[in-house]
Amino acid sequence: MKQLNQDEAKRICERVIGFSKADECRVLINGNRTGNIRYAQNSVSTAGLNENVQLTVSVAFGKRQGTASLNEFDDKSLEKAVRRAEDVARLAPENPEFLPAIGKQEFRASATFNQDTAAIDPEFRAEVASHSIVAGRKNKLVTAGFFVDTTGFETIANSNGVFGHQEFTNLSFTCTARTEDGRGSGWVTRAANDVRRFDAREASAVAIEKALRSVEAKALEPGRYTVILEPAATSEIIGRMFGAFDARQADEGRSFLSKKGGGNRLGEKLFDEQVNVWADPWDKDVPVRPWDSNSMLARERTDIIKNGKVASLDYSRYWAPAAGTAT
């Protein structure tokens, strides 16, 4: 099915909400067209193209909730999705932690779409792989890599008047270059929403240089060392670390952010004062959607670690009032 524009998506949301007989109705539509190419041993191994648009409907009768999803968009199918969600909701036990849908939100659009990225085709993907393979062969290295690009949209709506629609593009590339004797190896990763900021030659050259320079690498004894991490390595740590910034887990005593005797370590200085981490949906380098898809709340620029102090934890809508703080 083709990707939906804002008017088409809004019309579908209105139809879905109109069909619902439940106390409330929430709608999420995701669409994407994803192309990829994978190569190894200096040759393409697999390549493919997937396209899908999916509607997810969640309804509630009191504190009984049901969820349904489908990828057909005629009126009959839309009504079927609503009825199925309602059937599941009627069968579900009450969830004491259920919270009603939020009220209308103001979303400030972020620049997540790029036309040039949306125009990527199989020839372009083959060209990306070719740059890496050819450069690898020239250096007597074996390369393996993966390039994937997505063009898509997300729409959210609920029966309290929330509506948001945003289109997006993104691409990612990883490549591993190895010497034929297995002594040297290098890896690179790149991601962008604008293909003009991606250079397959530059990225491949980084993996190749690492492979060539690591041939004489020596084993280190365990111990304390000063370590310099490239951004790719730091981002791996950050990504895993913030999965543990859930306030409820901390308050319940099952997190490294739990405080002895109860409560959490929000506000404590746990890191070096040079450490500052924030989330910003409008960051020009890494824009993301200006809403949280689950809660449908508008996002704000948020400090997470400020001058080494824990500046915020992840509070769900249920846990925030219990803890006396904002979501």
Binding site: R26, L28, Q54, T67, A68, R84, D87, S293, N294
Partner: peptide, 12 residues
Amino acid sequence: MLVPVFGNAIAA
């Protein structure tokens, strides 16, 4: 909570 699910939800 609106949970995205990967597939079509259907009656039992």
